[in-house]
């Protein structure tokens, strides 16, 4: 367990992350034609991070398989706490129990950020959706994730919706059972 305590001390100033992310978004807004393209690219970047972040999460927390989506939602919460230092709430479960919302009251990514009026289509935090999708895909869960409410657009909280699509089957390498 000494390993995990050593790793837990590794933190960086959140403003460094905020501003680095911010300049990246700003650069994309310059490089790409539409806000929609930027949203896609941000999701993509999050996905790339998610598929790597999940390994760190599993090894750090030593967590096992989730029994149901409620379990998964709890794990996502602890990941938010671990990596972003914020504690979202899980609410608005759908009747079938295959969809839920994460409510963020504060979000280090959007500190110091203001969206200009002409970028109202921009989903600034779309990276987070990508991270969730990427990380869950690596544990055989195919999900969709999108932003419902956005503090940058005047909403009270930021709400991220996660919808379970299907379980991915383990693809075994040929020759192995």
């Amino acid at each position: 367990m000494s390993r995990s305590t050593r790793f837990d001390t590794k933190k960086v100033n959140s403003e460094l992350v905020t501003l680095t992310y911010g300049t990246l978004v700003a650069q994309m807004v310059k490089d790409l034609d539409t806000a929609e393209d930027v949203n896609k690219q941000l999701e993509r970047i999050g996905y790339n991070m998610g598929i790597r972040l999940i390994e760190d999460f599993l090894s750090r927390t030593g967590t096992g398989r989730c029994l149901d989506l409620k379990d998964t939602a709890d794990k996502i919460l602890s990941a938010f706490r671990l990596y972003l230092g914020v504690q979202p709430n899980v609410v608005n479960w759908s009747g079938a129990g295959d969809e839920f919302s994460l409510i963020l009251e504060s979000n280090p990514l959007t500190e110091l950020v203001e969206l200009p009026d002409e970028l109202k289509q921009l989903k600034y935090c779309n990276m987070i959706c990508g991270v969730i999708r990427g990380a869950l895909e690596m544990v055989q869960l195919d999900v969709q994730s999108w932003i419902v409410q956005d503090q940058l657009k005047g909403d009270q909280n930021t709400e991220i919706r996660v919808k379970f699509i299907r379980r991915l089957e383990d693809a075994m390498p040929a020759g192995e059972d």
Partner: peptide, 14 residues
Amino acid sequence: GEVSLNCFALLFSE
């Protein structure tokens, strides 16, 4: 405020 180093490392890599 603090954020995990892994987060920053992965973000910077992107």
